[in-house]
Design a protein around this nucleic acid. Sequence first.
RNA 1: GGCGGCGUGGCCGAGUGGUUUAGGCAGGGGCCUGCAAAGCCCCGUACGUCGGUUCGAUUCCGACCGCCGCCUCCA
Length: 467
Amino acid sequence: MLRLHDTATGTVHPLVQRDAGRVSIYVCGPTVYDLPHLGHGRYALVFDVLRRFLLFSGLEVHYVSNVTDVDDHIIDRAAAEERTEADVAAEYEARWWEAMDALGVLRPDDTPHATGYVADMVSLVAGLQGRGVAYETSDGVYLSVDRIAGYGLLARQPLESLRAGARVAAGEEKRSPLDFVLWKKAKPGEPSWPSPWGPGRPGWHTECVVMSLDLLGDGFDLHGGGQDLAFPHHENERAQAVADGRDFAHHWMHNGWVMVGGEKMSKSLGNFTSLTDLLGRRDPRAYRLLVLRSHYRSPIEVTDVTVSDAEKGLERLDGLARRFALPDVLDAAPGGFVVAGTGAATDADADAVARFNEAMEEDLDTPSALAAIFELVSRAHSVADGGGPRDPAAVRTAGTVAVLCGALGLPLRAGTGEVDDASASLAAERDQARRERDWDRADAIRDRLVAGGWTVEDGPQGTVLRR
RNA sequence: GGCGGCGUGGCCGAGUGGUUUAGGCAGGGGCCUGCAAAGCCCCGUACGUCGGUUCGAUUCCGACCGCCGCCUCCA
Protein backbone atom coordinates (compact mmCIF):
# COMPACT_ATOMS: atom_id res chain seq x y z
CA MET A 1 0.00 0.00 0.00
CA LEU A 2 1.39 3.34 -1.04
CA ARG A 3 1.98 5.76 1.79
CA LEU A 4 2.13 9.43 0.93
CA HIS A 5 2.72 12.65 2.77
CA ASP A 6 -0.56 14.48 3.24
CA THR A 7 -0.41 18.26 3.42
CA ALA A 8 -3.65 18.34 5.39
CA THR A 9 -2.18 16.40 8.29
CA GLY A 10 1.53 16.91 7.81
CA THR A 11 2.04 13.17 8.11
CA VAL A 12 2.79 10.27 5.84
CA HIS A 13 -0.09 7.84 5.74
CA PRO A 14 -1.66 5.33 3.34
CA LEU A 15 -3.33 6.65 0.23
CA VAL A 16 -6.78 5.24 0.83
CA GLN A 17 -8.84 4.34 -2.21
CA ARG A 18 -12.49 5.30 -2.29
CA ASP A 19 -13.02 2.48 -4.78
CA ALA A 20 -10.77 -0.50 -4.15
CA GLY A 21 -8.21 -0.96 -6.89
CA ARG A 22 -8.94 2.36 -8.51
CA VAL A 23 -7.19 5.62 -7.61
CA SER A 24 -8.74 8.97 -8.45
CA ILE A 25 -6.34 11.87 -8.81
CA TYR A 26 -6.77 15.51 -9.66
CA VAL A 27 -3.69 17.61 -10.37
CA CYS A 28 -3.86 21.33 -11.04
CA GLY A 29 -2.65 21.97 -14.54
CA PRO A 30 -1.24 25.01 -16.29
CA THR A 31 -2.65 28.41 -17.01
CA VAL A 32 -1.85 28.73 -20.67
CA TYR A 33 -0.49 32.20 -21.19
CA ASP A 34 3.24 31.56 -21.56
CA LEU A 35 5.78 28.80 -22.14
CA PRO A 36 5.98 26.23 -19.35
CA HIS A 37 8.99 26.67 -17.07
CA LEU A 38 11.06 24.14 -15.16
CA GLY A 39 8.73 24.24 -12.19
CA HIS A 40 5.83 23.10 -14.33
CA GLY A 41 8.04 20.36 -15.66
CA ARG A 42 8.84 19.20 -12.17
CA TYR A 43 5.29 18.86 -10.97
CA ALA A 44 4.29 17.18 -14.21
CA LEU A 45 7.09 14.64 -13.77
CA VAL A 46 6.41 14.06 -10.08
CA PHE A 47 2.77 13.27 -10.67
CA ASP A 48 3.55 11.29 -13.80
CA VAL A 49 5.86 9.10 -11.76
CA LEU A 50 3.21 8.70 -9.08
CA ARG A 51 0.67 7.69 -11.71
CA ARG A 52 3.02 5.28 -13.44
CA PHE A 53 3.99 3.67 -10.18
CA LEU A 54 0.33 3.11 -9.29
CA LEU A 55 -0.21 1.54 -12.71
CA PHE A 56 2.94 -0.50 -12.26
CA SER A 57 1.53 -1.71 -8.96
CA GLY A 58 -1.50 -3.03 -10.78
CA LEU A 59 -3.97 -0.32 -9.81
CA GLU A 60 -6.32 1.51 -12.08
CA VAL A 61 -5.84 5.25 -12.14
CA HIS A 62 -8.27 7.96 -13.11
CA TYR A 63 -6.03 10.95 -13.63
CA VAL A 64 -7.57 14.35 -14.25
CA SER A 65 -5.61 17.53 -14.88
CA ASN A 66 -7.11 20.76 -16.06
CA VAL A 67 -6.12 23.58 -18.37
CA THR A 68 -6.96 27.07 -17.19
CA ASP A 69 -7.85 28.89 -20.36
CA VAL A 70 -9.50 31.99 -18.96
CA ASP A 71 -7.50 34.18 -16.65
CA ASP A 72 -6.13 37.70 -16.22
CA HIS A 73 -2.70 36.78 -17.58
CA ILE A 74 -4.25 35.47 -20.76
CA ILE A 75 -6.35 38.60 -21.12
CA ASP A 76 -3.30 40.81 -20.58
CA ARG A 77 -1.26 38.96 -23.14
CA ALA A 78 -4.03 38.99 -25.69
CA ALA A 79 -4.42 42.73 -25.25
CA ALA A 80 -0.69 43.35 -25.50
CA GLU A 81 -0.39 41.29 -28.65
CA GLU A 82 -3.73 42.34 -30.14
CA ARG A 83 -5.02 38.80 -30.38
CA THR A 84 -8.00 37.01 -28.97
CA GLU A 85 -7.78 35.29 -25.62
CA ALA A 86 -8.74 32.03 -27.25
CA ASP A 87 -5.86 32.38 -29.68
CA VAL A 88 -3.33 32.94 -26.88
CA ALA A 89 -4.68 30.03 -24.87
CA ALA A 90 -4.66 27.69 -27.86
CA GLU A 91 -1.07 28.53 -28.71
CA TYR A 92 0.31 28.00 -25.24
CA GLU A 93 -1.74 24.92 -24.63
CA ALA A 94 -0.18 23.45 -27.75
CA ARG A 95 3.26 24.36 -26.48
CA TRP A 96 2.41 22.78 -23.15
CA TRP A 97 1.56 19.43 -24.70
CA GLU A 98 4.66 19.52 -26.86
CA ALA A 99 6.75 19.88 -23.72
CA MET A 100 4.81 17.16 -21.91
CA ASP A 101 5.26 14.78 -24.82
CA ALA A 102 8.96 15.52 -24.91
CA LEU A 103 9.19 14.75 -21.20
CA GLY A 104 7.33 11.51 -21.66
CA VAL A 105 4.48 12.57 -19.41
CA LEU A 106 1.37 10.51 -19.98
CA ARG A 107 -1.65 12.50 -21.08
CA PRO A 108 -4.32 12.86 -18.40
CA ASP A 109 -7.38 10.67 -18.75
CA ASP A 110 -9.44 13.85 -18.70
CA THR A 111 -8.34 17.40 -19.38
CA PRO A 112 -11.17 19.73 -18.47
CA HIS A 113 -10.95 23.34 -19.62
CA ALA A 114 -12.26 26.16 -17.47
CA THR A 115 -14.18 27.66 -20.37
CA GLY A 116 -16.10 24.42 -20.70
CA TYR A 117 -17.40 24.63 -17.14
CA VAL A 118 -18.51 28.23 -16.75
CA ALA A 119 -22.20 27.43 -16.39
CA ASP A 120 -21.48 24.93 -13.62
CA MET A 121 -19.27 27.46 -11.89
CA VAL A 122 -22.02 30.06 -12.03
CA SER A 123 -24.34 27.54 -10.37
CA LEU A 124 -21.84 26.87 -7.62
CA VAL A 125 -21.26 30.55 -6.94
CA ALA A 126 -24.98 31.30 -6.96
CA GLY A 127 -25.50 28.44 -4.54
CA LEU A 128 -22.82 29.77 -2.22
CA GLN A 129 -24.41 33.19 -2.32
CA GLY A 130 -27.75 31.58 -1.57
CA ARG A 131 -26.28 29.95 1.50
CA GLY A 132 -25.01 33.32 2.63
CA VAL A 133 -21.31 32.48 2.50
CA ALA A 134 -20.65 34.56 -0.61
CA TYR A 135 -21.42 38.22 -1.22
CA GLU A 136 -21.47 40.58 -4.15
CA THR A 137 -19.42 43.76 -4.46
CA SER A 138 -19.10 46.28 -7.25
CA ASP A 139 -16.46 44.18 -9.01
CA GLY A 140 -17.45 40.60 -8.29
CA VAL A 141 -18.59 37.93 -5.89
CA TYR A 142 -16.45 36.88 -2.92
CA LEU A 143 -16.40 34.03 -0.46
CA SER A 144 -16.48 34.82 3.25
CA VAL A 145 -13.59 32.85 4.51
CA ASP A 146 -14.48 33.08 8.19
CA ARG A 147 -17.65 31.17 7.49
CA ILE A 148 -15.59 28.14 6.54
CA ALA A 149 -14.94 25.47 9.12
CA GLY A 150 -11.29 24.58 9.31
CA TYR A 151 -10.04 27.29 6.98
CA GLY A 152 -6.25 27.15 7.14
CA LEU A 153 -6.06 23.36 7.02
CA LEU A 154 -3.68 23.29 4.06
CA ALA A 155 -1.83 26.43 5.08
CA ARG A 156 -1.24 24.55 8.34
CA GLN A 157 -2.09 27.56 10.40
CA PRO A 158 -5.24 28.99 11.93
CA LEU A 159 -7.34 31.64 10.27
CA GLU A 160 -6.26 34.25 12.78
CA SER A 161 -2.57 33.96 12.07
CA LEU A 162 -3.21 33.92 8.34
CA ARG A 163 -5.22 37.08 8.71
CA ALA A 164 -2.44 38.70 10.72
CA GLY A 165 0.00 38.37 7.85
CA ALA A 166 -2.40 39.14 5.04
CA ARG A 167 -1.68 42.12 2.84
CA VAL A 168 -4.52 44.39 2.00
CA ALA A 169 -4.73 46.21 -1.30
CA ALA A 170 -6.17 49.68 -1.38
CA GLY A 171 -9.75 50.14 -2.49
CA GLU A 172 -10.86 46.60 -1.85
CA GLU A 173 -14.43 46.02 -0.85
CA LYS A 174 -13.72 42.63 0.68
CA ARG A 175 -15.09 42.10 4.16
CA SER A 176 -11.96 40.25 5.18
CA PRO A 177 -8.55 40.41 3.51
CA LEU A 178 -8.57 36.64 3.07
CA ASP A 179 -11.87 36.54 1.23
CA PHE A 180 -11.32 35.54 -2.35
CA VAL A 181 -13.05 36.19 -5.62
CA LEU A 182 -15.44 33.62 -7.04
CA TRP A 183 -16.70 35.67 -9.94
CA LYS A 184 -15.18 38.69 -11.64
CA LYS A 185 -17.40 41.22 -13.35
CA ALA A 186 -16.20 41.99 -16.85
CA LYS A 187 -14.71 45.31 -17.80
CA PRO A 188 -15.30 46.53 -21.35
CA GLY A 189 -13.57 44.35 -23.90
CA GLU A 190 -12.94 41.44 -21.57
CA PRO A 191 -14.23 37.98 -22.38
CA SER A 192 -17.40 37.28 -20.47
CA TRP A 193 -20.20 34.86 -19.79
CA PRO A 194 -23.69 35.71 -18.59
CA SER A 195 -24.45 35.40 -14.89
CA PRO A 196 -26.86 36.64 -12.23
CA TRP A 197 -24.28 39.35 -11.50
CA GLY A 198 -23.99 40.45 -15.09
CA PRO A 199 -21.36 39.47 -17.64
CA GLY A 200 -18.11 38.23 -16.17
CA ARG A 201 -15.73 35.34 -15.71
CA PRO A 202 -15.00 32.83 -12.97
CA GLY A 203 -12.29 33.34 -10.39
CA TRP A 204 -9.39 30.92 -10.59
CA HIS A 205 -10.15 28.95 -7.44
CA THR A 206 -13.60 27.91 -8.59
CA GLU A 207 -12.85 25.87 -11.68
CA CYS A 208 -10.94 23.06 -9.99
CA VAL A 209 -13.66 22.43 -7.42
CA VAL A 210 -16.33 22.08 -10.06
CA MET A 211 -14.27 20.07 -12.52
CA SER A 212 -12.70 17.68 -10.04
CA LEU A 213 -16.02 16.85 -8.43
CA ASP A 214 -17.72 16.49 -11.79
CA LEU A 215 -15.15 14.10 -13.24
CA LEU A 216 -14.00 12.23 -10.14
CA GLY A 217 -17.01 12.54 -7.86
CA ASP A 218 -17.27 13.31 -4.17
CA GLY A 219 -14.53 12.12 -1.88
CA PHE A 220 -11.96 11.48 -4.58
CA ASP A 221 -8.62 10.16 -3.40
CA LEU A 222 -5.88 12.66 -4.11
CA HIS A 223 -5.49 16.27 -5.09
CA GLY A 224 -2.07 17.61 -5.93
CA GLY A 225 0.10 20.28 -7.38
CA GLY A 226 3.11 22.41 -6.66
CA GLN A 227 3.72 23.55 -3.11
CA ASP A 228 2.64 27.07 -3.90
CA LEU A 229 -0.84 25.86 -4.71
CA ALA A 230 -1.44 24.53 -1.21
CA PHE A 231 -2.27 28.02 -0.09
CA PRO A 232 -4.27 29.84 -1.17
CA HIS A 233 -5.43 27.93 -4.24
CA HIS A 234 -6.17 24.52 -2.76
CA GLU A 235 -7.26 26.03 0.53
CA ASN A 236 -9.81 28.06 -1.37
CA GLU A 237 -10.99 25.15 -3.46
CA ARG A 238 -11.56 23.21 -0.31
CA ALA A 239 -13.35 26.17 1.26
CA GLN A 240 -15.86 26.21 -1.58
CA ALA A 241 -16.44 22.49 -1.39
CA VAL A 242 -16.94 22.69 2.36
CA ALA A 243 -19.31 25.61 1.99
CA ASP A 244 -21.22 23.68 -0.65
CA GLY A 245 -21.47 20.64 1.57
CA ARG A 246 -19.38 18.42 -0.67
CA ASP A 247 -16.90 15.75 0.34
CA PHE A 248 -13.70 16.91 -1.32
CA ALA A 249 -10.23 15.40 -1.77
CA HIS A 250 -9.18 12.97 0.96
CA HIS A 251 -5.44 13.35 0.54
CA TRP A 252 -3.30 16.32 -0.53
CA MET A 253 0.10 16.05 -2.14
CA HIS A 254 2.43 18.92 -2.99
CA ASN A 255 5.84 18.89 -4.57
CA GLY A 256 8.79 21.15 -3.77
CA TRP A 257 10.32 23.96 -5.75
CA VAL A 258 12.78 24.23 -8.52
CA MET A 259 15.48 26.53 -7.21
CA VAL A 260 17.86 28.85 -8.97
CA GLY A 261 20.90 29.90 -7.01
CA GLY A 262 19.15 29.08 -3.76
CA GLU A 263 15.96 30.96 -4.59
CA LYS A 264 12.61 29.69 -5.71
CA MET A 265 12.13 29.82 -9.44
CA SER A 266 9.11 31.96 -10.11
CA LYS A 267 7.56 34.23 -12.61
CA SER A 268 7.65 37.19 -10.27
CA LEU A 269 11.39 36.86 -9.63
CA GLY A 270 12.00 36.53 -13.35
CA ASN A 271 14.56 33.81 -12.74
CA PHE A 272 12.86 31.08 -14.68
CA THR A 273 14.11 28.92 -17.49
CA SER A 274 11.50 27.71 -19.88
CA LEU A 275 11.03 24.01 -20.09
CA THR A 276 10.89 24.33 -23.84
CA ASP A 277 14.38 25.79 -23.79
CA LEU A 278 15.86 23.06 -21.59
CA LEU A 279 14.24 20.29 -23.61
CA GLY A 280 15.65 21.79 -26.76
CA ARG A 281 19.20 21.73 -25.41
CA ARG A 282 19.33 18.56 -23.31
CA ASP A 283 18.11 15.01 -23.30
CA PRO A 284 14.59 15.33 -21.85
CA ARG A 285 15.16 12.11 -19.93
CA ALA A 286 17.94 13.86 -18.01
CA TYR A 287 15.41 16.24 -16.49
CA ARG A 288 13.26 13.31 -15.42
CA LEU A 289 16.27 11.62 -13.85
CA LEU A 290 17.29 14.86 -12.17
CA VAL A 291 13.81 15.18 -10.69
CA LEU A 292 13.87 11.56 -9.55
CA ARG A 293 17.25 11.88 -7.90
CA SER A 294 15.84 13.97 -5.10
CA HIS A 295 12.74 13.45 -3.03
CA TYR A 296 9.67 15.14 -4.51
CA ARG A 297 9.19 17.37 -1.49
CA SER A 298 12.76 18.67 -1.44
CA PRO A 299 13.86 21.68 -3.42
CA ILE A 300 16.04 20.93 -6.43
CA GLU A 301 18.66 23.06 -8.11
CA VAL A 302 18.60 22.89 -11.86
CA THR A 303 21.93 24.06 -13.25
CA ASP A 304 24.23 22.99 -16.04
CA VAL A 305 26.14 20.98 -13.47
CA THR A 306 23.16 19.09 -12.05
CA VAL A 307 21.70 18.44 -15.48
CA SER A 308 25.05 17.18 -16.74
CA ASP A 309 25.31 14.97 -13.71
CA ALA A 310 21.94 13.48 -14.54
CA GLU A 311 22.99 12.99 -18.16
CA LYS A 312 25.96 10.97 -17.00
CA GLY A 313 23.71 8.80 -14.89
CA LEU A 314 21.53 8.33 -17.92
CA GLU A 315 24.58 7.36 -19.92
CA ARG A 316 25.27 4.61 -17.44
CA LEU A 317 21.75 3.28 -17.87
CA ASP A 318 21.91 3.56 -21.65
CA GLY A 319 25.28 1.82 -21.56
CA LEU A 320 23.59 -1.16 -19.99
CA ALA A 321 20.84 -1.07 -22.58
CA ARG A 322 23.48 -1.03 -25.33
CA ARG A 323 25.44 -3.90 -23.92
CA PHE A 324 22.36 -6.08 -23.52
CA ALA A 325 20.44 -4.65 -26.47
CA LEU A 326 17.50 -4.06 -24.16
CA PRO A 327 14.24 -3.24 -25.86
CA ASP A 328 12.49 -0.02 -25.16
CA VAL A 329 10.06 -0.98 -22.45
CA LEU A 330 8.17 2.25 -22.31
CA ASP A 331 5.90 1.17 -25.12
CA ALA A 332 4.64 -1.69 -23.04
CA ALA A 333 1.08 -1.16 -21.86
CA PRO A 334 1.31 1.00 -18.74
CA GLY A 335 -0.70 -1.42 -16.66
CA GLY A 336 0.92 -4.45 -18.20
CA PHE A 337 4.38 -4.24 -16.74
CA VAL A 338 5.61 -7.51 -15.46
CA VAL A 339 8.75 -7.54 -13.43
CA ALA A 340 10.98 -9.65 -15.58
CA GLY A 341 11.27 -13.09 -14.19
CA THR A 342 10.08 -12.24 -10.73
CA GLY A 343 9.41 -15.88 -10.11
CA ALA A 344 12.56 -17.20 -11.69
CA ALA A 345 14.80 -14.28 -10.92
CA THR A 346 17.81 -14.62 -8.74
CA ASP A 347 17.35 -13.78 -5.11
CA ALA A 348 19.42 -10.67 -5.65
CA ASP A 349 17.11 -9.44 -8.42
CA ALA A 350 14.03 -10.09 -6.34
CA ASP A 351 15.65 -8.33 -3.43
CA ALA A 352 16.39 -5.26 -5.51
CA VAL A 353 12.86 -5.19 -6.88
CA ALA A 354 11.54 -5.44 -3.35
CA ARG A 355 13.72 -2.56 -2.27
CA PHE A 356 12.56 -0.54 -5.26
CA ASN A 357 8.93 -1.14 -4.36
CA GLU A 358 9.44 -0.46 -0.68
CA ALA A 359 11.19 2.80 -1.44
CA MET A 360 8.48 3.92 -3.82
CA GLU A 361 5.71 2.93 -1.45
CA GLU A 362 7.20 4.98 1.34
CA ASP A 363 6.22 8.42 0.09
CA LEU A 364 7.79 7.95 -3.33
CA ASP A 365 11.39 7.74 -2.22
CA THR A 366 12.72 7.83 -5.76
CA PRO A 367 16.36 8.41 -4.77
CA SER A 368 16.40 5.12 -2.89
CA ALA A 369 14.49 3.44 -5.69
CA LEU A 370 17.16 4.61 -8.11
CA ALA A 371 19.86 3.29 -5.82
CA ALA A 372 18.27 -0.15 -6.10
CA ILE A 373 18.29 0.18 -9.88
CA PHE A 374 21.92 1.25 -10.06
CA GLU A 375 22.93 -1.67 -7.93
CA LEU A 376 21.26 -3.94 -10.47
CA VAL A 377 23.16 -2.19 -13.24
CA SER A 378 26.47 -2.95 -11.57
CA ARG A 379 25.55 -6.54 -10.99
CA ALA A 380 24.36 -7.12 -14.55
CA HIS A 381 27.68 -5.84 -15.85
CA SER A 382 29.62 -7.77 -13.30
CA VAL A 383 27.90 -11.05 -14.15
CA ALA A 384 28.28 -10.38 -17.86
CA ASP A 385 31.99 -9.73 -17.41
CA GLY A 386 32.20 -13.34 -16.31
CA GLY A 387 29.61 -15.03 -18.47
CA GLY A 388 29.23 -12.64 -21.38
CA PRO A 389 26.30 -10.44 -22.39
CA ARG A 390 24.26 -13.54 -23.22
CA ASP A 391 24.55 -14.94 -19.74
CA PRO A 392 20.92 -15.63 -18.75
CA ALA A 393 21.33 -14.30 -15.23
CA ALA A 394 22.92 -11.11 -16.50
CA VAL A 395 20.23 -10.65 -19.12
CA ARG A 396 17.53 -11.14 -16.55
CA THR A 397 19.09 -8.59 -14.24
CA ALA A 398 19.50 -6.10 -17.05
CA GLY A 399 15.90 -6.69 -18.08
CA THR A 400 14.79 -5.93 -14.56
CA VAL A 401 16.60 -2.62 -14.81
CA ALA A 402 14.68 -1.81 -17.97
CA VAL A 403 11.37 -2.72 -16.37
CA LEU A 404 12.00 -0.67 -13.25
CA CYS A 405 13.15 2.28 -15.31
CA GLY A 406 10.00 1.86 -17.36
CA ALA A 407 7.96 2.05 -14.18
CA LEU A 408 9.52 5.46 -13.61
CA GLY A 409 8.83 6.56 -17.16
CA LEU A 410 12.49 6.46 -18.03
CA PRO A 411 13.01 4.67 -21.34
CA LEU A 412 16.48 3.27 -21.95
CA ARG A 413 18.13 3.87 -25.24
CA ALA A 414 20.08 0.98 -26.68
CA GLY A 415 20.85 2.68 -29.96
CA THR A 416 24.00 4.60 -30.69
CA GLY A 417 22.34 7.34 -32.69
CA GLU A 418 22.66 8.13 -36.37
CA VAL A 419 26.14 7.53 -37.70
CA ASP A 420 26.85 9.44 -40.89
CA ASP A 421 28.49 7.67 -43.84
CA ALA A 422 31.77 9.52 -43.53
CA SER A 423 32.16 8.58 -39.88
CA ALA A 424 31.07 5.02 -40.57
CA SER A 425 33.71 4.63 -43.24
CA LEU A 426 36.33 6.08 -40.93
CA ALA A 427 35.32 3.48 -38.38
CA ALA A 428 35.67 0.75 -41.01
CA GLU A 429 39.06 2.12 -41.95
CA ARG A 430 40.13 2.01 -38.34
CA ASP A 431 39.02 -1.58 -38.00
CA GLN A 432 41.08 -2.45 -41.08
CA ALA A 433 44.10 -0.68 -39.60
CA ARG A 434 43.62 -2.56 -36.36
CA ARG A 435 43.46 -5.89 -38.17
CA GLU A 436 46.75 -4.93 -39.76
CA ARG A 437 48.04 -3.99 -36.32
CA ASP A 438 48.79 -0.51 -37.65
CA TRP A 439 48.18 1.13 -34.29
CA ASP A 440 49.42 4.57 -35.29
CA ARG A 441 46.92 4.76 -38.13
CA ALA A 442 44.11 3.31 -36.02
CA ASP A 443 44.73 5.83 -33.27
CA ALA A 444 44.96 8.73 -35.70
CA ILE A 445 41.56 7.81 -37.08
CA ARG A 446 40.17 7.52 -33.59
CA ASP A 447 41.48 10.99 -32.80
CA ARG A 448 39.67 12.35 -35.82
CA LEU A 449 36.43 10.71 -34.77
CA VAL A 450 36.75 11.96 -31.21
CA ALA A 451 37.43 15.44 -32.52
CA GLY A 452 34.21 15.07 -34.46
CA GLY A 453 32.30 14.57 -31.24
CA TRP A 454 32.10 10.79 -31.21
CA THR A 455 32.72 8.47 -28.32
CA VAL A 456 34.73 5.60 -29.72
CA GLU A 457 34.53 2.15 -28.19
CA ASP A 458 35.88 -1.20 -29.27
CA GLY A 459 33.08 -3.71 -29.28
CA PRO A 460 33.12 -7.38 -30.16
CA GLN A 461 32.35 -6.47 -33.79
CA GLY A 462 34.86 -3.64 -33.97
CA THR A 463 34.56 0.12 -33.60
CA VAL A 464 31.34 1.40 -32.09
CA LEU A 465 30.51 5.06 -32.45
CA ARG A 466 28.08 6.98 -30.39
CA ARG A 467 27.36 10.58 -29.58
C1' G B 1 5.15 39.32 13.22
C1' G B 2 2.76 34.18 12.44
C1' C B 3 3.61 29.28 10.29
C1' G B 4 6.59 25.52 7.91
C1' G B 5 10.97 23.16 5.79
C1' C B 6 16.14 22.38 5.44
C1' G B 7 21.65 22.13 7.04
C1' U B 8 25.10 14.61 5.44
C1' G B 9 31.95 13.11 2.82
C1' G B 10 34.83 17.46 -3.43
C1' C B 11 29.57 17.97 -5.66
C1' C B 12 24.43 15.93 -5.90
C1' G B 13 21.53 13.14 -2.61
C1' A B 14 18.82 8.87 0.54
C1' G B 15 18.78 6.80 5.25
C1' U B 16 19.53 4.98 10.24
C1' G B 17 19.92 4.94 17.88
C1' G B 18 25.27 0.87 17.82
C1' U B 19 27.02 -4.17 14.97
C1' U B 20 29.00 -4.07 6.91
C1' U B 21 28.24 -0.39 2.90
C1' A B 22 22.92 4.08 0.44
C1' G B 23 23.28 5.46 -4.76
C1' G B 24 25.13 8.82 -8.70
C1' C B 25 29.02 12.22 -10.38
C1' A B 26 34.04 13.74 -9.82
C1' G B 27 38.99 11.95 -7.86
C1' G B 28 42.98 8.03 -6.65
C1' G B 29 44.87 2.80 -7.24
C1' G B 30 44.33 -1.91 -9.76
C1' C B 31 42.19 -5.45 -13.60
C1' C B 32 40.82 -5.68 -18.70
C1' U B 33 42.77 -3.32 -23.54
C1' G B 34 47.96 -2.96 -28.68
C1' C B 35 46.74 1.95 -26.29
C1' A B 36 42.16 3.86 -25.01
C1' A B 37 36.87 3.86 -24.18
C1' A B 38 33.18 0.95 -21.86
C1' G B 39 33.01 -2.45 -17.83
C1' C B 40 34.75 -4.78 -13.16
C1' C B 41 37.39 -4.56 -8.19
C1' C B 42 39.38 -1.48 -4.18
C1' C B 43 39.79 3.45 -1.78
C1' G B 44 37.28 8.70 1.20
C1' U B 45 36.55 7.07 9.34
C1' A B 46 30.31 12.66 6.20
C1' C B 47 26.43 13.86 9.15
C1' G B 48 25.66 22.94 11.14
C1' U B 49 27.04 24.56 16.62
C1' C B 50 26.40 23.83 21.85
C1' G B 51 24.08 21.15 25.56
C1' G B 52 20.80 17.01 27.28
C1' U B 53 18.68 11.83 27.35
C1' U B 54 21.29 7.03 26.61
C1' C B 55 25.89 1.93 27.91
C1' G B 56 26.11 4.38 22.95
C1' A B 57 23.38 9.83 18.65
C1' U B 58 24.50 11.85 12.49
C1' U B 59 19.75 9.52 13.96
C1' C B 60 15.70 11.34 20.08
C1' C B 61 15.04 16.22 23.12
C1' G B 62 16.34 21.51 23.85
C1' A B 63 18.80 25.95 22.62
C1' C B 64 21.48 28.52 19.08
C1' C B 65 23.46 29.77 14.18
C1' G B 66 22.72 29.70 8.96
C1' C B 67 19.71 28.99 4.55
C1' C B 68 14.90 28.64 2.13
C1' G B 69 9.70 29.07 1.68
C1' C B 70 4.38 30.35 2.71
C1' C B 71 1.06 34.22 4.82
C1' U B 72 0.01 38.29 -2.67
C1' C B 73 -0.35 36.01 -8.79
C1' C B 74 2.79 31.58 -8.94
C1' A B 75 3.90 24.48 -10.30
